[in-house]
Amino acid sequence: MTTNYIGIGRVTGPVYELPAGPLTTSVLGNYTVFDRTSGQNFANSDDLYLLLSGFPYRNTPSSNPNHRDTLSGRNGGRGAGVQ
């Protein structure tokens, strides 16, 4: 099971006027909360395992929770095409 909460804020605008058009920049902030839980469970017959090993079935379930908070920022520029 995985859940993601992502918040993104962005401001975009021109910073320089080129002959072909405006050079645009964008500033972005990103906050992500990530959660993941995975696991396995097993079942088998005790009767069968007693025949095979002399012992009942030994289950070995597993669980692997994972949590991550990420705060990141980015800046990018873009030149406009010929208008």
Partner: peptide, 18 residues
């Protein structure tokens, strides 16, 4: 924002279960 600038703010949520 001002005359030529734009801003956006969004939040997303996704849930996956397998």
């Amino acid at each position: 924002l001002f005359e030529k600038w734009e801003w956006s703010l969004d939040g997303s949520y996704d849930y996956n279960h397998t």
